[in-house]
Design a protein around this nucleic acid. Sequence first.
DNA 1: AAGTAACCATACCGGTCGGTATACTCGCAG
DNA 2: CTGCGAGTATACCGACCGGTATGGTTACTT
Lengths: 196, 196
Amino acid sequence: MSTPAGEKLIAAASTLFYRHGIRAVGVDLIAETAGTTKKTLYDRFGSKDALVALYLERRTGIWREFLHEHLHGRPVEDLFDVLALWLREQDRGCAFVNAYAEIGGTGHPAEPVIRAEKEWMRAFLVDRAREQGHPESTGVALHLLYEGATVLATAGGDPDAPARAKASALAVLYPPADEQGERGQQHQHDHSLAER
Amino acid sequence: MSTPAGEKLIAAASTLFYRHGIRAVGVDLIAETAGTTKKTLYDRFGSKDALVALYLERRTGIWREFLHEHLHGRPVEDLFDVLALWLREQDRGCAFVNAYAEIGGTGHPAEPVIRAEKEWMRAFLVDRAREQGHPESTGVALHLLYEGATVLATAGGDPDAPARAKASALAVLYPPADEQGERGQQHQHDHSLAER
DNA sequence: AAGTAACCATACCGGTCGGTATACTCGCAG
DNA sequence: CTGCGAGTATACCGACCGGTATGGTTACTT
């Protein structure tokens, strides 16, 4: 936690950074939106870069909470239903991918935060898959499908990407029992997440 | 094609936009890097936004050429070897995803270029998969894995992501013949792309 | 010979960038 | 009652932003 004015600044910065991007948002606008001053911003955080790193750190917590709350007690493939739900409000996609697009490779203090988030998600999915009796490679595949679905739902403009990713995930988790080739998403298992 | 000075401007803009991002690069720097002037830039392209759109349009062509050249005559799963090769030089990841992170949802003239690229890639993979006897859903799965691998190789900092994606792709393309669960990437088929 | 497309050079515009400086007010703990 | 952390308000800094204006120089066409 931070001071009251500090929290208002983080909240304003988070909204603005996510919606418009990092470079597109100036510190003047952040301070004004938060109803405070640039002086306070620099007293609390020292630099815009530090505020950016904090924005992403806060965001990891929010996503993990959302994920745990909605995936609790459900099979791992329902991840994609949770993602679809998340993207309905977070329509600018993955904040970490977006941030990396702007600051990647510059030595920015937020870079390790981005890598850590991706690593955490990989480990989470490997663990969850393992609990259901699947090898590490299956968790990795789920992670790849998850990132792909996020990108295609936003930059790709395909709102059904998470649903398609779920279908692909089911094919990986429960491979068809016959020998080869010709068929597709024939088994539907209906593990689908109830609309809440 | 454009005039000589126009081409120099596009080349300079492409390098700079890809390396540092769109907002991070000013028109003054582009003109100076190209060894020409801002006047010429505006005479040729009219606005920075138009130059951004052109940058992405050019980039689609370069990637498609690279893809066709390296994937020619090889099975579709070798896509991931081609991607690894591409990312060895294009280490800032997908230019379209990065651009969308900066301009997405703003009505920028480059937005349709981004969506078109993702759609083209989807159609390409669906076609290629179909040629090998696989249903549309398999091509879609390959597309998701491809986007996921690109993100995880760059923002995720995992240079082996394309290789992992290939293993996942093989599991989708050639599902294991037994009933369920417990095993992973047991068949390796060795369709791997010869190092060139 | 006149016109024109392409180009270079330079200066300018209002606005915003990240960051700093100065000065003042409040509430609270020693 | 004094000192200090937290806050507000405002002004300032040099640098850069996207975009425009003016003017002059080639080279090729009609």
